[in-house]
Amino acid sequence: MNRQARASLKRRKLTAAAARVLHEQGVERTTLADIAREADVPVGNVYYYFKTKDELVRAALSEHSAHLDELTDRLDELADPRDRLRALIEGWVGLRDVTARHGCPTGTLAVELDKRADGTLDAEAGAVIRRLLDWAGSQFRELGLSDPDDLALTLVSAYQGMSLMANALRDPDIMSREGARLLRWLDSLPVPDRRG
């Protein structure tokens, strides 16, 4: 492996570590040393690739965005948009234990960043959530449902709410119960008759 490939791999390792540690500890409690420890690299390496904590937060948001892309690409392999949305909800429920401990990775980061004075990184976190909303809206649109963007907002808001409650109450069963409720809601949405 050449030097450039090793450097790229190390940066990717640090980015993934930043996403995990920031999700678990939050921005204010996380140090660059925490991320170095998680990535199993000397702390000097963190400073080489990321000069500030904000650069690490930006990298973590990029990691969340890449994860969302991977997830939606996998879901898009399913033929039916309702099945894609169902699989999304089931995936959220599958992460119930992590969510009960730490909340939604992007949602909790967005809320924490909103409290900061500079106000730039919170917009980047919001952009990741917007991408999820847009993807969900396209699924409802493909189903031919009216108000697809509103339905997407209902879905993603429900996820954020159940994530918040599961985390606040440290109860993963909230994700299971609310996920089941979301699945029933999704199945109750009428599919327009497209025969014509």
Rank of each mutant, 00 (worst) to 15 (best):
N2S: 12
N2Q: 12
R3T: 15
Q4P: 01
Q4I: 05
A5G: 14
R6V: 15
S8H: 14
K10Q: 15
R11P: 01
L14S: 02
L14Y: 11
T15H: 04
T15M: 01
A18I: 00
A19P: 00
R20A: 15
H23G: 15
Q25N: 14
G26E: 06
R29W: 13
R29L: 11
T30A: 03
L32C: 09
D34L: 01
D34H: 03
A36Q: 01
E38N: 01
A39G: 05
A39W: 03
D40A: 08
P42V: 12
V43S: 09
N45T: 09
F50D: 11
K51T: 15
T52R: 00
T52C: 01
T52E: 03
K53T: 03
L56G: 00
V57Q: 00
R58C: 10
A59D: 04
A59V: 00
A59K: 07
S62E: 10
S62G: 14
S62C: 13
H64Q: 07
H64N: 08
S65L: 08
A66E: 04
D69F: 09
D69P: 06
D73W: 14
D73P: 14
R74H: 15
L75A: 00
L75Q: 06
L78C: 04
L78V: 08
P81Y: 05
P81D: 08
R82F: 07
R84S: 06
L85F: 07
R86V: 13
A87F: 01
V93F: 07
V93E: 10
R96W: 10
R96V: 11
R96Q: 07
V98G: 05
T99D: 12
T99C: 15
G103N: 08
L109I: 00
L109H: 00
V111Q: 06
E112Q: 07
L113A: 03
D114E: 14
D114S: 15
K115S: 04
R116D: 07
D118T: 04
T120P: 05
L121P: 01
A123K: 06
E124G: 02
E124W: 02
V128D: 00
I129Q: 02
R131V: 02
L132T: 04
W135P: 12
A136H: 01
E142V: 09
E142A: 14
G144C: 08
L145I: 13
L145G: 10
D150M: 10
V156C: 00
A158I: 02
Y159M: 13
S163M: 09
S163C: 04
A166W: 06
R170Y: 03
D173H: 05
D173F: 03
I174P: 01
M175S: 10
R177A: 09
A180D: 15
L182W: 03
L183Y: 14
L186F: 11
L186V: 03
L189S: 03
P190E: 09
P190W: 05
V191Y: 10
P192I: 11
R194H: 11
R194G: 13
R195W: 08
G196E: 14
